[in-house]
Simulated assay, not measured.
Amino acid sequence: MLTLALVVDQLTVMLGGRRILDGLTLAAQPGRLTAVLGPNGAGKTTLIRCCTGLLKPDAGSVTVLGQPAGNAQVAARVGLMPQSTGAWSGIKAVELLHYLAGLYAHPQDVDALVDRCGIGPFAKTPYRRLSGGQQQAVNLAGALIGRPELVFLDEPTAGMDPHARRATWTLLTELRTAGVAIVLTTHAMDEAQTLADQVYIVDSGRVTVAGTVAELTSDEQSLEDVFLTHTRSGRHEAAR
């Protein structure tokens, strides 16, 4: 029987009188990286908020590690890297990670994680003074500090330089090999093409096409071509 870390079934969300998610259905497996692609406003961040219990859907269901989304029994087994964490602005990077480590019974070693994510040179810099890419590295470390079985990464390499980006790709590959289920949103088609085991392309709150990279590009189209074919061009308002 197929084991699923995440099951999203017919998810519908209304915000401000608009239908942000419209019967969206997808799944993610342990030891696999699932990429969710879509234009700005397609509903990707709203999807992650529902999956992590931050937003209650109007219809449909989300099952996370066998429990309803937001269930306290699985909270410590799930990691989240949001697009921004402005609440951390005054704290130093390493202090933030030590604080987050204290929330878990068996966290990763902070010093080892600082080294692995390349945070050492700016570990004692206040979060608000970090560059965008440096903040992303700290956000990623924060998502991984609790040794999650399932982790949600919302555009994890946005703002990173090429070296940091490739190092992050290597880290995600190692996590996948270790059995972690990874759900990643990205606008970088090369990132999805390189890393993803399964791809869902989302537009206007619905999955328009899904499959492995090989399946989606079987007629010699690039993943970007497939994306452009199955999404509308820039007619979305922001969906958050």
Rank of each mutant, 00 (worst) to 15 (best):
L2N: 12
L6V: 05
L6S: 01
D9P: 08
D9R: 13
Q10S: 14
Q10I: 09
V13F: 06
M14R: 14
G16A: 07
G16V: 08
I20F: 05
D22C: 02
L24E: 05
L24M: 11
L26K: 01
A27D: 12
P30C: 04
L33F: 00
L33V: 00
T34W: 00
T34V: 05
A35G: 00
V36D: 03
L37S: 04
L37Y: 02
G38V: 03
G43W: 00
G43E: 01
K44W: 03
T45L: 07
T45G: 02
T46F: 02
L47H: 01
I48V: 14
C51A: 14
C51R: 07
G53N: 08
L55M: 13
P57E: 06
D58F: 12
T63L: 11
T63Y: 02
L65F: 01
G66L: 01
Q67I: 01
Q67E: 12
A69S: 12
G70M: 06
G70V: 07
V74C: 07
A75T: 13
A76Y: 05
A76M: 09
V78F: 00
G79A: 00
G79D: 03
M81S: 13
S84Q: 15
S84G: 14
T85C: 13
G86I: 10
G90P: 13
K92P: 06
A93P: 03
H98R: 15
H98D: 14
Y99R: 13
Y99N: 06
A101M: 04
A101V: 06
Y104W: 07
Y104R: 02
Y104E: 01
Q108S: 13
V110E: 08
D111F: 06
V114R: 03
P121V: 13
F122R: 10
A123Q: 09
K124A: 11
T125N: 07
T125I: 12
L130A: 11
S131W: 02
G133M: 10
Q135M: 14
Q135C: 14
Q136P: 13
Q136F: 09
A137H: 08
V138D: 08
L140H: 07
L140R: 09
I145S: 10
R147K: 14
R147G: 06
P148H: 02
E149Q: 13
L150P: 11
V151H: 03
L153C: 08
P156D: 05
A158Y: 10
P162I: 08
H163T: 15
A164M: 09
A164Y: 02
A164L: 02
R165Y: 06
R166S: 13
A167I: 11
A167R: 15
T168Y: 02
W169K: 12
T170A: 12
E174I: 00
V180P: 01
V180H: 00
A181P: 06
A181L: 04
I182V: 14
E191Q: 10
Q193K: 14
A196E: 04
D197R: 07
D197F: 07
D203Q: 02
S204H: 14
G205A: 00
R206K: 11
A210L: 05
T212C: 02
A214I: 11
A214S: 14
T217C: 15
T217W: 12
D219F: 09
E220Y: 15
Q221I: 10
Q221Y: 12
Q221G: 12
S222G: 14
L223M: 03
E224Q: 15
D225H: 14
F227Q: 04
H230C: 01
T231I: 04
R232Q: 15
R232I: 09
G234A: 15
G234R: 13
G234P: 11
A238E: 11
A238R: 13
A239C: 07
A239Y: 06
